[in-house]
């Protein structure tokens, strides 16, 4: 018998279950791209059969970090840059949970960049959505790791001397096994990509372009966008690392030239970290969290380890 009966529950799921009946209403600015992520998630989750009580959304700090304030799931709004280590540990402790981590471009590619690199490398079975608005939204528009070269803000009054990070390429070299880019202005594709990412066994990284009309005025609404799978101009094999790399490189360049290339960029079937750890005998097959509720569980004692000390 499980102590976590929300997990794996089979039933009709109403989209409305993911929206709270009462406050709080989202406090994002009108026209903010973050609404698009929230909406796409609310659509994708019932579609893949997940209920609010079996999902854990773990967010960082930023406008984006408020995501789970407005989404009815178990939520953990952590600290700036640290959503991934919290999220992956929760998944290790109870891998029945559907774990979704999310945060801003500053949160994930800047202050939390080390965790991004390593969580991708280890291929933890979870979804990671980066709200990429190319600025620090919550702290009032400073230059972020994805801001284009030359970008002016209060912290770079003469324009940004740094070239932006390449988020898709970074995900690929680090070891993510599902990599996609979508945009708030493209709700259908966003929903589909989120659904695929959730179903993917391994680390699924979504670079989600979320316009920030408040601080990124000259910038863009990320339209028109091109879906690289649908467009006839692009033809590459998403399971081929080299082709994927080239396509990512092009998409990252194109964004700063005004062409928004979205879609799936890479998929790999490498086993997830959890599966590898289980195969090595480094992680129990039954979720660890279940054991604490199992009255018949036998707990090992240090007393039985004393041989080596006597």
């Amino acid at each position: 018998m499980s102590a976590f009966n929300a997990i794996g529950e089979e039933r009709e799921i109403d989209r409305e279950e993911f929206t709270a009946d009462n406050e709080p209403q989202p406090t994002w600015c009108p026209g903010c791209g973050d609404f698009g992520v929230l909406k796409a998630l609310k659509q994708a989750l019932p579609e893949v059969g997940r209920t609010p009580d079996e999902v854990l959304t773990v967010t960082g700090i930023g406008c984006s970090g408020k995501l789970n304030s407005y989404l009815e799931t178990y939520g953990f709004h952590t600290i700036h840059g640290r959503s991934l280590p919290v999220a992956r540990a929760a998944k290790l402790a109870n891998d029945g949970l559907e774990v979704i981590a999310a945060g801003g471009d500053g949160d994930g590619y800047g202050i939390g960049g080390n965790h991004f690199m390593h969580t991708a490398r280890e291929n933890h079975d979870m979804t990671y959505i980066v709200f990429n608005n190319e600025v620090f939204g919550l702290t009032k528009g400073q230059t972020s790791p994805t801001s284009p070269k030359g970008h002016k803000s209060k912290t770079t009054p003469h324009g940004n001397a740094k070239s932006p990070i390449r988020p898709l390429s970074l995900g690929l070299t680090s070891g993510a096994t599902y990599i996609a880019r979508t945009a708030a202005v493209n709700p259908n594709q966003a929903k589909e990509i989120i659904a695929e990412a959730i179903e993917h066994d391994g680390f699924a990284h979504i670079d989600f372009l979320t316009q920030c009309p408040t601080w990124n005025k000259d910038a863009r609404q990320y339209v028109p966008y091109v879906d690289v799978q649908e467009s006839e101009d692009y033809d590459f094999d998403i399971t081929d690392r080299e082709q994927a790399q080239d396509m990512m490189f092009e998409a990252e360049n194109a964004l700063h030239e005004g062409t928004v290339l979205t879609g799936r960029f890479f998929v790999d079937e490498r086993p997830s970290y959890q599966d590898q750890k289980k195969d090595l005998g480094e992680m129990p097959r039954e979720p660890l969290a279940e054991r604490y509720f199992d009255e018949d569980a036998k707990w090992e004692r240090s007393y039985d380890l004393l041989d080596r000390h006597t």
């Binding site: 799931t73 709004h77 109870n94 969290a289």
Partner: peptide
């Protein structure tokens, strides 16, 4: 998380 009926938000 995962328990039926225990949904809440943890936040710093």
């Amino acid at each position: 998380p995962g328990q039926s009926g225990g949904r809440y938000l943890a936040t710093g």
